[in-house]
Design a protein around this nucleic acid. Structure first.
Length: 597
RNA sequence: GGUCUCGUAGCUCAGUUGGAUAGAGCAACAGCCUUCUAAGCUGUGGGCCGAAGGUUCGAAUCCUUCCGAGAUCACCA
């Protein structure tokens, strides 16, 4: 039982004892004492005035005295207005710290009684162009959320659903056929996803020209968009694909293969992975049967032309098409199918979709449909809806060439890390291998942290010109703090100082040390909260606070050079724990920490 | 118009089921390296928490209205 629960219990007891009355547990609010006040935990007594029928100060005083007399961990208390601040004795904190040191994965729940299986779908790229900054946010979020969920004892399964079919894919294929002259990634010396992306852009450019021409000849824009020869050819190609025309399929396979190989490189560089990859070319027909069943049950209805719809006007939404008149499926049909399949395949308890907030409506509809169909799992579908990454001048637009490419960005970050290291003379006497390793860690750390520290649901701005900071609330700052700790530990080892598995409980803890220990104390709550809210940002901000606090401590107190051996060892011991948590938290975020930098 | 998000310092962001005097970083200015990594630390300035009401002992947080920004409402995915 943790100390907060223990305090709660005792307060209940105190109220019973002093005022001879029961109160609901929810009336007992124990929180961490704010930094500007003396104490470790604070009881807010306002909700208890109802039973005490006394002024706040007096109530706090009475309860404080009772607690102090009855809990040996409490060494003192003070009352300010309606706040009862309790101070715990140092041996409690030392004991706690020893406990942390003994655990391999402090903060994790390693054995959960009824672990859930949670499926996390993320990334979900189209195979017609390379990944960009928006995908980076998606990938980092999906990966980190999966880690965080797993840390809380549930089983997290990462899946990717690759959108490898459809008209947009045909556009790239058609352009390559027309203007590619048989070029391949090898011949072009280019990553396959970038090469295919070039053809997609090429298509769009030519298509625009054709539209302009048709408009000049007197067609409306709408007509022109439909009648441009290129789009007609692309649609024709899609029909051939669906009819399994062998040469179309062969080209499709080849170009998809190029793109997927390119994605693999990007994923690897980003440091993310999947347990299972689905392809839409395999799944796009799923869901039709379910829709038919729904039609029989009267959940959906058929229009005169034979198309199937769901009416969501009672829910404040519109009608939504589920099957075309020709019986082919649309996007949502497929999602109905895959959701069902996944709950089946994996015996999943929850399904989380990491998808941008532009698709909020889609997922709202999906969930409602599943509900209407009577699937009990409908309430376990979650849309982790993340905000757009915007540039200072607004949204990224491929037409205007303002898309920030994922590969370019990573490369750029690493290069910046390299420049800064050189300017600071940090890595001058490092070997080439280690140096490259470190600048990679730092560059990617800066990028990942920059994105993950922001609350997922919020839109965020990314300014490529200002680039990403390496000072302040950043990945490198945290990595640096970690490297400092590691450096201390290594120096201690060199001096043959043993850091024990436990430290004696009689020790004076100074204010900074206590601050750090208290932060360590909250780590499990932080992970729980991050998991509940599907928010890596909570972990990121916590780790930052920890690093900041540690740097202050480091600056203010000698550690290795502390004369009293006992204190020196204690500080090393504390540093070691802080380092472990930084490492642990960062790894949940998918960010590496260097041994030195 | 319907539905849904968001609005906190010049900029980028924290602020956990409502709690004490709203916090960081960047940018600006002023300090700190003969001592464990200065990618660090300390200090200064900077706020009608979009606005107004309401609920409450107590509101950046909850409710209502309004203002502002964005997304979405496709036989695209």
């Amino acid at each position: 039982m943790n100390i907060e629960m223990q305090l709660k219990d005792k307060v209940l007891e105190a109220v019973q004892h002093i005022y001879s009355q029961q109160v609901d547990e929810s009336a007992i609010q124990i929180q961490k004492t704010r930094k500007d006040f003396e104490g470790d935990f604070t009881l807010v007594v306002f909700p208890l005035l109802r039973v005490s029928k006394k002024p706040p100060e007096q109530t706090a005083e009475e309860i404080g005295k009772y607690l102090c007399d009855n809990i040996h961990e409490i060494s003192g208390y003070n009352v300010i207005k309606g706040f009862l601040n309790l101070t715990l004795n140092s041996s409690f904190w030392v004991l706690f710290l020893n406990n942390v040191a003994g655990k391999e994965h402090y903060g994790y729940i390693t054995e959960k009684e009824n672990p859930s299986t949670v499926l996390i779908e993320y990334s979900s790229p189209n195979t017609n162009k390379p990944l960009h900054l928006g995908h980076i946010r998606n990938n980092l979020l999906g990966y980190a959320v999966a880690n965080i969920i797993a840390s809380q004892g549930d089983k997290a399964i990462k899946v990717n659903l690759v959108n490898d079919r459809g008209i947009h894919i045909c556009k790239s294929m058609l352009a390559w056929q027309k203007w590619g002259n048989g070029i391949t990634p090898e011949k072009a010396g280019k990553k396959g996803d970038h090469l295919v992306g070039d053809f997609y852009v090429m298509f769009d450019k030519e298509y625009k020209i054709q539209i302009e021409e048709l408009i000049e000849k007197g067609q409306t824009e709408e007509e022109a968009k439909k009648n441009a020869p290129l789009i007609i050819e692309a649609q024709d190609m899609l029909r051939k694909w669906e009819a399994k025309d062998s040469s179309t399929i062969a080209l499709w396979k080849e170009m998809n293969h190029w793109v997927l190989r390119g994605f693999d490189v990007t994923y690897k560089n980003l440091g993310i992975d999947f347990d299972k990859v689905y392809f839409e070319s395999d799944t796009y027909k799923l869901g039709k049967e379910i829709v038919q069943e729904g039609l029989k049950k009267g959940v959906f209805f058929k229009k005169d032309d034979g198309s199937v719809w769901v009416d969501l006007t009672d829910e404040g939404l519109d009608q939504k098409l589920l099957l075309r008149a020709d019986g082919t499926s649309v996007y949502i049909t497929q999602d109905i199918g895959t959701a069902h399949q996944r709950f089946d395949d994996f015996k999943a308890n929850e399904l989380i979709y990491v998808v941008g907030n532009e698709q909020n409506y889609h997922f709202q509809v999906l969930k409602l449909i599943m509900q209407k169909l009577g699937y009990s799992f409908s309430e376990y579908l979650f849309h982790l809806s993340y905000g757009m990454v915007e540039l200072p001048e607004g949204k990224m637009k491929s037409r205007e060439g303002t898309v920030v490419d994922a590969d370019d960005l990573m490369e750029e970050m690493i290069r910046t890390a390299e420049e800064m290291s050189r300017e600071l003379g940090k890595l001058d006497d490092y070997g080439e291998n280690e140096k490259n390793q470190i600048i990679r860690t730092i560059g990617l750390g800066a990028l990942k942290y920059f994105i993950l520290k922001v609350d997922p649901k919020k839109n965020m701005t990314f300014d490529p010109k200002e680039s990403i900071d390496f000072n302040g609330n950043t990945g490198p700052f945290i990595q640096y703090s970690y490297a400092r700790i590691r450096s201390l530990i290594k120096k201690a080892q060199a001096k043959e100082i043993q850091i024990p598995a436990e430290i004696p409980s009689v020790i004076d803890i100074n204010i900074k040390e206590l601050q750090l220990i208290k932060l360590i104390h909250t780590y499990p709550e932080i992970l729980y909260e991050a998991s509940e809210n599907l928010s890596p940002a909570i972990v990121a901000n916590y780790i930052y606070e920890m690093a900041k606090e540690y740097n202050q401590f480091y600056h203010e107190y000698p550690i290795l050079s502390e004369e009293k051996a006992g204190i020196s060892v204690f500080r090393l011991f504390l540093s070691l724990q802080v380092g472990k948590i930084i490492q642990s938290g960062m790894s949940l975020l998918g960010i590496d920490v260097p041994e030195r930098m």
